[in-house]
Simulated assay, not measured.
Amino acid sequence: MKTVLTTGSNGLLGQKLTEKILAEGRVKLVATSKGANRYPIKSGYDYAEMDILNPEQITAVIEKYKPDAIIHTAAMTNVDTAEADKERCHKLNVDAVQSLISLCKEKDIQLIHLSTDFVFDGADGPYKEEDAVNPLSYYGESKVLAEDLLKNSKANWVILRTILVYGITNDMSRSNIVLWAKGALEKALPINVVNDQWRMPTLAEDLAEACILAVEKSAHGIYHISGKDYMSIADLVRKVADYWGLDQSIIAEVSSEGLNQTAKRPIRTGFVLDKAVKDLNYNPHSFEEGLKIVDEQMKASLK
């Protein structure tokens, strides 16, 4: 059985990986994150504190646990924060990846790196893996730089690009588009929602499954991983309102320009999933199915 080390295990994807690996036992897990372990179950796997900006700590942890694969989920993912603090974004999203590449090459460890639809300009989505990148934001640029480091390395690498990941963590500490929309609508306060950006939202459990499949199948190269449904952000929020029976009359649709966000967003992304379906047997949930899973988890957490 392969040993998998995850970075960013306190984040949404990190926690879903822990949950899935503990439930299914397909690989052994070493979870790592900066600071204490926030996952409620502490047994059945190893946990190590590891700051991805500390190369000596990374080396020590990897030499201790000798993983077969690293699933690198830790990153700066807030697009506007990345635009405002390019230096820190570069450290987290580019320099940290270089540290991992060097170790993975030296120790023959498979490196599974999470990337984003924001590497594209959104002029011609949905995109295939080989389509030309052209980021509009520094966040997207940092992810392209990291991808280039991987592609130009002799390491055993996999890039999983994804879109608008949603789900809940055990402590409800991480927000995302679905939780934001549900929470805002429940407060019954008017909300502005962009109606000229199109995406394929991704259930965190589906992305975690793709990560494990990439390990099990010894994958190599770039794969597009998202949900199967293509929709505007406004449609997404309306689907959330529909599912939980919330008032849609308070949703005000606005253009991207009307939101006045720090970083520019691509208009139409979305992915062609054929390669991941064929090579990895990837089979994502529909958005409706994803909302049902989130709803069931929320209810279970209240018990």
Rank of each mutant, 00 (worst) to 15 (best):
G270H: 08
D196R: 02
D171L: 11
A263W: 08
T18N: 05
E253R: 00
Y243P: 00
G122W: 13
A75G: 10
P126Y: 09
A204W: 08
E87H: 10
M200Q: 15
K154A: 12
M231A: 05
D148S: 10
W244H: 03
G245H: 10
P135H: 11
Y65I: 02
L150M: 05
E205W: 14
L111N: 01
P135N: 09
T59M: 06
E209C: 03
R174V: 15
E49C: 03
I225L: 09
M1T: 14
A300E: 15
L207Y: 12
A36H: 11
P284K: 01
W157I: 04
H90W: 14
R88S: 12
A132C: 02
V254K: 05
S301N: 13
A210R: 03
S43I: 08
L114R: 00
S226P: 06
G14C: 07
I58P: 01
L136M: 11
V240H: 04
A123T: 15
G227Y: 02
E56Y: 12
W198G: 00
D247K: 08
K64Y: 11
D131T: 09
Q261F: 15
D46L: 07
L22Y: 06
N37G: 06
A155M: 06
M200P: 01
A75W: 10
T6G: 03
T73L: 13
P40E: 07
